Computed example of a mutant assay.
Amino acid sequence: MQYCRSKNSSLVPAAPIGNAVKHNVVTAVRPLRIRVYVEGGMLCVSNNLQEKQVIRKSSGVGLRNIQERYQMLSSREVQIGKSVSEFTVKLPMLMEGIGFRETHETFLEEKRYQKAKEQVEAIKGFYGNLISYCVVLPVLAIINYNTTSFPWVIFPAVGWGFGVAIHGMEVFGYNPLLGKNWEERKIQKYMEDENF
């Protein structure tokens, strides 16, 4: 997302203006009128609506990206409005340097909490699977022993046991071929690669 600087030192995304040009007809006969103004602590980018006739409808990915990025910077939401004749995007004003560190730290803390919560849920799921294996398998062994001489209990013991082992390796981040936490190391490598 590109930014331009306004008179009051706010950082202003240029993406809504680019989207207006991208999705509307712009000719000498049908000029595109873009208004940029401040209203209620929001930077508003508004344009007259004269949509291009395209074969494939817009996916809205650009607007979703703007909304997601603003969620990282502000608790206030991006507002998008569309009428028959006008399209408006209202963005929370972000004062440079004020509250960014606190917002960023809060975002990172929430991410860490979410990741830790997901890991705890995954561990609970694994232990539930392991306990079920340890309780059910002896029952199956007793049934097998009392009903037939063929040791069919070996099949669920091996199959389910293999599943429990794979589940445990997945939960605790161990890969027998690539080592522990290989996925996180690979992600970190790609994040540090400027050419990726």
Rank of each mutant, 00 (worst) to 15 (best):
Y3P: 01
S6F: 15
S6R: 08
S9L: 02
S9W: 09
P13I: 15
P13E: 07
P16R: 04
G18S: 09
G18H: 13
G18W: 07
A20K: 06
H23V: 08
V25Q: 02
V29Y: 01
R30Y: 10
P31D: 09
I34W: 04
I34F: 00
V36W: 01
Y37D: 09
Y37V: 13
V38H: 05
G40L: 06
G41V: 05
M42F: 15
L43G: 01
S46M: 03
N47E: 07
N48M: 05
L49A: 10
Q50D: 13
Q50E: 13
Q50S: 15
R56K: 10
K57P: 02
K57G: 11
V61S: 06
G62N: 12
L63A: 04
I66D: 02
I66R: 06
Q71I: 15
S75V: 13
S75I: 14
E77I: 11
S83K: 02
V84N: 09
E86I: 05
P92Y: 04
G97V: 14
I98K: 12
G99W: 01
G99C: 06
T103Q: 14
E105W: 14
T106C: 01
L108W: 12
L108K: 12
E109K: 14
E110H: 12
A116C: 04
K117E: 13
E118P: 00
E121F: 07
E121Y: 04
A122M: 07
G125F: 02
F126N: 03
G128S: 08
N129S: 15
N129T: 14
N129W: 04
S132W: 11
C134H: 09
V136H: 01
L137Q: 11
V139I: 10
V139Y: 00
V139R: 02
A141N: 06
I142Q: 03
I143E: 03
T148K: 05
F150P: 00
P151G: 05
P151Q: 09
V153E: 08
I154N: 02
P156V: 15
G161Y: 04
G163M: 14
V164G: 00
F172S: 07
F172A: 09
L178R: 06
K180I: 14
W182V: 13
E183V: 12
R185I: 09
K186N: 07
K189M: 12
M191L: 07
N195Y: 10
